[in-house]
Design a protein around this nucleic acid. Structure first.
Lengths: 324, 324
DNA sequence: ATGAAAGCGCTAACAC
DNA sequence: GTGTTAGCGCTTTCAT
């Protein structure tokens, strides 16, 4: 049961390879007669073309690299799922890469993707971008992350989302509102619009911002430990704006175990979170729209559409209130 | 900034393409002198080999197809994440395919994967297997699903897991224990060991099994609706073994909204679930081990290791008790 | 120890 | 309308 190739079909149909190729691609003029002859041959031999050979010739693989921290995180999971679905509907295939926010891994993956001649990349890793991004002119778009001037960003309105969350907690009469975030370095803080939105809102309300940082690269158990520790030291906390839903869930569990009643607002609003975590409010990012725009922008770039420098697509978020 | 190819390196180094290829692959005898000459040329030109061309020649792509319902589901998300990580560490790349349990989609993806010359496939879709599986002899392994005699299965011990869950609910003094499952067809019920474990346990305890089926292909909102309806009709339900954690979460939310106190046990035990859903017990599947074995088995098959017919790897589960 | 030439499976000029 | 030929970028016999 050897692999059937174009030449075999040609022989079977009694024509030249070129003719078979023409039938395959619907190019040039071919008589209906030979067309059916070739099609029959294909059917009986159960032929399908070798995409690797086609890619080599055409310099086009229809392959897109998806570079994200980890599909285990529901936000990235849903994003990747949606991206793949859209890409697939457009005839593209998705290579998945879990970077775990590791610069080194990201770099390796990038090399791999380039070597495999992907037509484009969608990147959502959150580590410092590596140098390769500067030296390639492969079409790339980024999700909620700055990579380089040339690479357009698709993100939700983090600042407004944070304001909504903070205002809600204020209006819910929380007395000690804390923002729990993954950001840990100065550099990250600078670009962290969720943090900025929180701080600005608190200041506007003439309240003191209170930030608690858990490393977002740390594993869940470590985060749980840190949160636990924090709540022990600050048992009067009664309002939390968490920078992500997973963190919100962890905080919720810790609070419940201590019988603390804390009003929590998360960020992301994935369907997984909405299903699993009924009692927690959140800021919903429009993942589907973000994915749509990301793919559209990428495929545009692939087909040569010029994209201005520092382009950003900022999509609106919505507050989802839930208290069972 | 054209793409650098092997020939360019050869020219730069003043040697033949063959020599460059030899250096690249560490084959044959080459003097240290030319080796460094070639390496320098590669460096200055920033050369990396075109994997598509290599694949075409070598008839090996190092590509593996991952065919799963949807990475949005935390179980598949973590499974795919883990599979990709392991594959990547072994020099393989992962093509992700979300089938949404759609037979037609699965078939399209399969064709696509075959056309793209993947070296193997790991499949976790739950629909009826399509015919292609019979006609190919590409290495394939399945996660918790029968595809064909030739295709080994890796699964957790669904039967024992269901027994553990049911026994727990019994011992927790639940008076009305219901099993909520996605299975809807007779065919599915037959192979559904979680269902069987539940029924057998109930009978052993001389209790009446009570099954409630929500379509597992339906979207979340529909499931929520069905569960809601069920709880309206059966408000005395105080114990539920849910066939999956997502379902468990949905049931939990519905119950809380009705202020019903229901002891729930889910199935999967993903880290996402454990993070987001603090109060619900579950049966934990060893996803990492399953992924390990799946990849090991697949790579074995790829390198020609024979695998007996109807091979099954059944991994032990653990009960995780949680009530905040 | 190195190079020339053929070929992986497919496509596109260019002929006829 | 259809076939002949060359070539995508790389690897590998087979010479030398």
């Amino acid at each position: 049961m050897e692999k059937v190739k174009l030449g075999d079909v040609a022989k079977q149909a009694g024509v030249s390879p070129t003719t078979v190729s023409r039938v395959l691609n619907n190019r040039g003029y071919i008589s209906e007669e030979t067309k059916t002859k070739v099609r029959d041959a294909m059917d009986t031999l159960n032929y399908f073309p070798n995409e690797v050979a086609r890619s080599l010739f055409g310099n086009k693989t229809n392959l897109v690299g998806l570079l994200f921290p980890n599909v285990t995180n529901p936000f990235y999971g849903e994003m990747v799922s949606e991206l793949e679905s859209i890409l697939s509907s457009q005839g593209y295939k998705a290579l998945i890469c879990n970077t775990f926010n590791n610069e080194k891994k990201e770099e390796e993956y990038l090399r791999m993707l380039l070597a495999n001649q992907v037509d484009g990349i969608i990147v959502g890793s959150r580590n410092r971008p590596c140098d390769i991004y500067q030296s390639t002119n492969l079409p790339i778009v980024a999700i909620d992350r700055f990579v380089s001037e040339k690479i357009p960003i698709i993100r939700s309105d983090n600042y407004t989302g944070a304001c909504l969350a903070s205002e809600y907690l204020h209006e819910a009469n929380c007395r000690n509102i804390v923002h729990v975030t993954g950001s840990t370095t100065q550099e990250m803080e600078k670009g962290d619009m969720r943090l900025r939105g929180y701080i600005d809102t608190m200041l506007k309300l003439e309240r003191e911002p209170q930030i608690f940082q858990v490393g977002f690269d740390e594993d869940d158990d470590y985060q749980r430990l840190k949160v636990d520790e924090f709540l022990n030291l600050n048992p009067d906390t009664d309002g939390v704006f968490a920078a992500g839903d997973t963190l919100a869930g962890i905080i919720n569990t810790c609070a419940k175990r201590k019988s603390l009643d804390i009003e929590i607002v998360g960020y992301d609003g994935t369907s997984t979170f909405l299903n699993l975590c009924g009692g927690i409010s959140t800021i919903h990012q429009p993942i589907n729209e973000m994915a749509s725009i990301a793919v559209e922008t990428l495929l545009g770039a692939i087909s040569g559409v010029y994209c201005e420098d520092n382009k950003e697509y900022v999509l609106p978020v919505t507050f989802i209130k839930r208290r069972y």
